[in-house]
């Protein structure tokens, strides 16, 4: 494979895996969404401070949800899990489930309360 030239003439039939051909427009749209969410995140991190003064647990819930949304978008569109084989999703999700379990149980064991409401960070 290494000795192939990249000249346009030699291009054979498309060699994609199961996923749909990558689409520049979608990539850029996703980037814009990710960028906007990041801005919202920065804004949301001031929610529990004056003048808004929301409860800390609301801020944390919002922030964690936004981060999860960003992660989901990256995984689904930039890492192609939306279009690729279910097997990759299964492999990745299994790891994420065990990782989440680990993090939650560790936080519980160290006395963070059961709901995010009590999260003392």
């Amino acid at each position: 494979m290494a000795n192939q030239t990249s000249s346009q003439a030699e291009v054979a039939a498309p060699h994609h895996d199961a996923h749909a051909p990558s689409n520049v427009r979608v990539y850029i749209q996703i980037f814009v969404v990710l960028f906007v969410i990041t801005m919202v995140e920065v804004f949301a991190s001031y929610l529990d401070e004056p003048p808004i003064n929301l409860e800390t647990w609301i801020e944390i819930t919002v922030l964690v949800a936004l981060a999860a949304l960003k992660g989901l978008l990256v995984v689904m569109f930039y890492m192609h899990l939306r279009f690729d084989s279910r097997w990759f999703t299964t492999l990745f999700t299994t790891g994420i489930i065990i990782a989440t379990l680990m993090a939650i149980v560790f936080l519980l064991l160290w006395g963070y309360k059961a709901s995010l409401g009590g999260l003392v960070l």
Partner: peptide, 24 residues
């Protein structure tokens, strides 16, 4: 690709352990 995805999910636990250490 199957191998890389497997490795990535292993790495996810690696970083979870580090982040959990920070948080606790």
């Amino acid at each position: 690709k199957v191998g890389l995805w497997t490795f990535i999910s292993s790495e996810a636990i690696f970083f979870t352990a580090l982040i959990s250490t920070y948080l606790v």
